[in-house]
Amino acid sequence: MDPQGPILIEGPVEIVLEDGTVARSDRFVAALCTCRRSRVYPWCDTSHRRRARPPSPRDDRRSR
């Protein structure tokens, strides 16, 4: 599981956004964006995957 990834919930679902707008999904599973990078917010479009991650200490040791 990706901590920056979406929250999966069973649908159909209605989400009330901060501005009072209601977003609806008729899908049997809806992916809610948690990173706020999605172009179709509140639904996830996998934008979280495009973020470059800093190398881990383990990766630094391999490159030496």
Score class of each variant (00 low, 15 high):
residue 41 Y to N: 08
residue 19 D to Y: 06
residue 22 V to H: 07
residue 2 D to R: 12
residue 15 I to W: 02
residue 27 R to Y: 11
residue 46 T to A: 03
residue 25 S to K: 06
residue 5 G to W: 00
residue 7 I to H: 03
residue 43 W to M: 01
residue 30 A to N: 04
residue 49 R to V: 02
residue 54 P to L: 15
residue 17 L to D: 04
residue 13 V to Y: 04
residue 6 P to I: 00
residue 56 S to F: 08
residue 9 I to Y: 03
residue 34 T to H: 02
residue 8 L to V: 12
residue 43 W to Q: 01
residue 37 R to V: 02
residue 14 E to Y: 04
residue 31 A to W: 02
residue 64 R to N: 08
residue 64 R to G: 09
residue 47 S to R: 00
residue 36 R to E: 09
residue 32 L to E: 01
residue 50 R to G: 12
residue 8 L to S: 13
residue 31 A to F: 06
residue 48 H to Y: 11
residue 39 R to Q: 11
residue 64 R to H: 10
residue 16 V to N: 05
residue 35 C to D: 01
residue 60 D to V: 14
residue 57 P to D: 05
residue 48 H to S: 04
residue 21 T to S: 14
residue 22 V to C: 04
residue 30 A to R: 02
residue 33 C to Q: 01
residue 27 R to W: 08
residue 35 C to R: 00
residue 39 R to L: 10
residue 10 E to M: 09
residue 47 S to V: 03
residue 59 D to I: 07
residue 4 Q to R: 15
residue 19 D to G: 04
residue 13 V to G: 04
residue 56 S to E: 12
residue 53 R to W: 10
residue 40 V to A: 07
residue 56 S to K: 12
residue 13 V to A: 15
residue 32 L to W: 01
residue 6 P to G: 03
residue 50 R to H: 11
residue 43 W to C: 00
residue 59 D to P: 00
residue 54 P to W: 12
residue 50 R to N: 10
residue 10 E to V: 11
residue 51 R to M: 14
residue 54 P to F: 15
residue 49 R to K: 15
residue 3 P to H: 09
residue 44 C to V: 01
residue 49 R to M: 11
residue 14 E to T: 10
residue 9 I to M: 10
residue 34 T to F: 02
residue 58 R to H: 11
residue 4 Q to T: 13
residue 44 C to Y: 00
residue 51 R to F: 13
residue 30 A to K: 01
residue 52 A to I: 14
residue 48 H to G: 02
residue 41 Y to Q: 06
residue 20 G to K: 12
residue 27 R to S: 14
residue 43 W to K: 01
residue 27 R to Q: 14
residue 34 T to N: 09
residue 24 R to Y: 08
residue 46 T to N: 03
residue 33 C to Y: 01
residue 23 A to I: 03
residue 59 D to Q: 14
residue 51 R to P: 06
residue 21 T to V: 13
residue 45 D to A: 05
residue 29 V to R: 09
residue 3 P to F: 09
residue 8 L to C: 08
residue 9 I to C: 07
residue 34 T to L: 10
residue 44 C to G: 04
residue 18 E to W: 03
residue 43 W to S: 00
